[in-house]
Design a protein around this nucleic acid. Structure first.
Lengths: 149, 149
DNA sequence: ACATTGTCTACCAAATTTGTAGAATATTAT
DNA sequence: ATAATATTCTACAAATTTGGTAGACAATGT
């Protein structure tokens, strides 16, 4: 499971993506719109700034804005920032590699091959899930509810 | 990431799979072979028994043995027992469904579609990773080290 | 000057993880 | 019978992670 922090980050990023190149959004607005505790969201947005995914402006009319195009930011990237490795075991992680402490000889590990397969499938799917794809979903959902009215 | 408990469970199950229909193995032996804290492993094996994946015999010569064929038990099943949902968010979990508490209207959630895709890819890969596939890996690794000698 | 908004650090409660401890129970060999 | 072996069951606990809150401070626009 993904942490709430990570899910909040995704929702905040989608909100910023919807506002891409249209100025900045305040934490308060994003928090209210997306149902995220404001003070918690502040920390999250700071981390996103450190990761160079967003930038901010202080003062009245200030807030956060996306630095990259919505199709350049994926769930995989956000997951790694907030929840760490996508891999199920550290010894097959691409970005957070560590030897497993219960594993005396990595080359002899009969788990790795399947762990790598799982990682790759998950990773690919998570990389395909870009902010843009979320925006597209949002749009098509809105279209659908409009039709049913 | 997978919990250590789950990883231990997989290793223990592979060990039992290697001994399938050849009698029972004691906790002590499995713990020593697979580098798992014995007392912790006891708890794990009890949970596996409750899940009807293994059975046990007490007393001298006793221990645990696999109830199902090695190709009938997958990593997906073990993951669910020890780490819960494979899905990244509760609202797309097949076995542990729950509404997300930050989500007012599930039908309007623009995250679900991609979350379902990720879940399905991960799930499929985890279901393909059966105890038998681990045994096969183990065998081919042993063959390989034999050739390099 | 003042209201607004982000920045930074510290703190905190609850849950989860990763075990350990020990007594009780069942089984088997002698 | 009894000793040895092995599972069963319950409780406990330290360390880490999660999901936040609080408050002082800094920057910015009007």
């Amino acid at each position: 499971m993904m942490s709430k922090k990570c899910k909040y980050a995704i929702k905040a990023m989608v909100r910023l993506a919807a506002n891409y190149q249209k100025g900045s959004l305040s934490t308060a607005i994003i928090a209210a719109d997306e149902n995220i505790p404001k003070k918690f969201l502040e920390q999250i947005l700071l981390e996103l700034k450190q990761a160079k995914l967003v930038n901010s402006k202080q003062g009245i009319g200030g807030g956060y804005y996306l630095l990259k195009s919505p199709n350049e930011v994926s769930m995989a990237e956000l997951y790694r920032i907030f929840d760490g490795p996508i891999a199920l075991v550290p010894c097959v992680s691409l970005y957070y590699y560590e030897p497993c402490d219960d594993c005396p000889d990595e080359a002899a590990c009969y788990l790795r091959k399947e762990m790598i397969k799982v990682r790759d499938k998950t990773r690919t799917a998570m990389m395909k899930a870009t902010l843009q794809s979320f925006l597209d979903n949002q749009k098509s959902i809105k279209q659908q509810t409009k039709r049913t009215l």
